[in-house]
Amino acid sequence: MSNIHVTTTVNGDEVEFLCDPRETLLDALRDKLNLTGAKEGCGTGDCGACSVTMDGRLVCSCLVLGAEAEGKQIATVEGIADGETLHPLQQKFIEYAALQCGICTPGILVATKALLEKNPDPTETEVRYWLAGNLCRCTGYDKIIRAVMDTAADLRRAS
């Protein structure tokens, strides 16, 4: 099968890659663009480790084809910080020790950022159900929720 040429925008930068038509966006990001922040936890849309946004919409990149990224705006965990300056969400995850092995963290940050952009004032229950598709085997989630609630409050105060 011949490869497809894809032009897309990732974290604000225009990029091009060639990919097998059957290749997922996750594999394209990891293998073609060396953006290994998104992880494969299941490959079937059930764990959220591969979360990215496509035109602002939260998706599992393991369920999107690389070819579908054509002309889209993709945002990954690598684009959350502003250069050396961490996003408040990233700072809070460190402060709250909301990670252990850290492999779920990129997906959870991307998902949370998407939530806070939609809903800057979520209830705890809303956060919990929004993140229900992002599995974490290590933390037991408590510190994650607290970090998210506190970031949301901070961001509201700042805006």
Binding site: A38, E78, T105
Partner: peptide, 23 residues
């Protein structure tokens, strides 16, 4: 002391390398 995980900054920026991330 309650100090964060040693690689916390790498984790939140998606730059912590696991085996499958090694170039």
């Amino acid at each position: 002391k309650s100090l964060p995980h040693d690689a916390a900054r790498l984790h939140v920026t998606g730059t912590a390398r696991y085996v499958d991330d090694i170039p």
